[in-house]
């Protein structure tokens, strides 16, 4: 077995060639560029003579880390990610479980699955404009509602409050992405061999037990994907915070990506500081992802093997049955 696998090793390399070639052509230069200019004095437009900071190579990194706005931005980013990701994952899991439950078919689930993903196909700019209009002051549908319900006697300036602004960004993120997460998880659940579920039914497992002991362990690999991509996406959150309130009010919705963008484009063209901040975020994300990988690793690998074995068994059964 071992020797046989070895002989196929070259195909591993061959099949990776397209990815590597495309990466070398399109991404290598931009990435090296970003990594390098963090150590230089590059700022301003059309600068051609760039100097490395020889006296203190990490000056830009220190400047960024001690920058109060960066610290605020980092806190905001973490808070807004965690608070939108937990309910998002919960709801997505729930919906995915409902829609893949073979025992009770939800009528119209095809329709629901399609519809729930739809907030994701509208551009972020449109979403931002709509929500801004919804909560505007002094005239907006939300203010009309609040006043007609008698909750307030004069218009409320919703978006001046830091917490309200943050809550709305969290809601938008949640609302735009739970459908996506649901689709990902659903596809993961549908990848599980039906025989496993059938076996669970035979064993007399109820719905909750099936979900917890069969579905969840079998989509662990996909869950890891969801965690990691959401972590990356969450810590790089940009569109909505930037387009909705420009990171305001009073920096309440400024994320690290908005901070990086502001460093690079809002007047001073501090490309070096922006690049340093990018690299700092990169290190943080790598660190956190490694933890996630580590936490889910052993079980993950074991799970993969087990699933593979289980599947193989099921396959044999299926092949026999088919014949």
């Amino acid at each position: 077995m071992q020797t046989k696998k070895f002989s196929y090793a070259k195909w591993g390399y061959i099949f990776s060639i397209p990815f590597v070639v495309a990466f070398l052509i399109f991404s290598l230069y931009p990435i090296i560029y970003t990594a390098v200019i963090g150590f230089t004095d590059l700022k301003g437009l059309g600068m051609t003579d760039i100097h490395f900071l020889t006296d203190d190579p990490f000056r830009n990194f220190k400047t960024v880390l001690s920058n109060p706005s960066f610290q605020t931005a980092f806190q905001n980013t973490v808070v807004m990610w965690v608070l939108n990701f937990i309910p998002q994952l919960g709801l997505a899991l729930l919906l995915a479980a409902w829609f893949t439950d073979k025992r009770s078919y939800v009528k119209g689930q095809g329709f629901f699955k399609v519809v729930f993903y739809m907030p994701n196909i509208i551009t972020a700019a449109t979403v931002a404009i709509l929500f801004k209009a919804l909560f505007d002051y002094p005239m907006s549908p939300m203010n009309d509602l609040v006043i007609s319900l008698g909750l307030a006697d004069k218009p409320i300036q919703f978006l001046i409050s830091k917490n309200v602004a943050r809550a709305i960004v969290i809601f938008i993120q949640f609302w735009m992405w739970y459908g996506y997460t649901m689709v990902v998880l659903t596809s993961g659940i549908l990848g599980i061999s039906p025989e496993i579920f059938e076996a669970a039914v035979v064993d007399g497992a109820n719905r909750w037990q099936t979900f917890w002991y069969v579905t969840i362990p079998n989509i662990k690999t996909i869950l890891l994907f969801t965690f990691i991509t959401s972590l990356i996406g969450g810590l790089n959150m940009f569109d909505i915070p930037k387009l909705f309130l420009l990171g305001g009010p009073d920096n309440a919705t400024m994320t690290t990506s908005v901070f990086i963008y502001n460093q690079a484009f809002s007047g001073s063209y501090l490309y070096n500081r922006a690049a340093a901040a990018s690299m700092i975020m990169f290190v943080i994300i790598v660190f956190l992802s490694s933890i996630l990988f580590y936490l889910l690793r052993d079980k993950d690998e074991a799970q993969m093997k087990k699933a593979s074995r289980r599947r193989a068994k099921a396959e044999k059964v299926a092949v026999k049955g088919g014949k």
Binding site: K43, F70, Q157, I160, S161, D250, N262, G267, S268, L270
Partner: peptide, 23 residues
């Protein structure tokens, strides 16, 4: 809107400019 004092607003303004621009 009453969220902060005049001095605080000025201080925060200065901080934002210092943090984001090469000024």
């Amino acid at each position: 809107s009453g969220q902060k004092t005049r001095d605080q607003a000025l201080a925060d303004f200065k901080q934002q400019v210092a943090d984001n621009l090469d000024v």
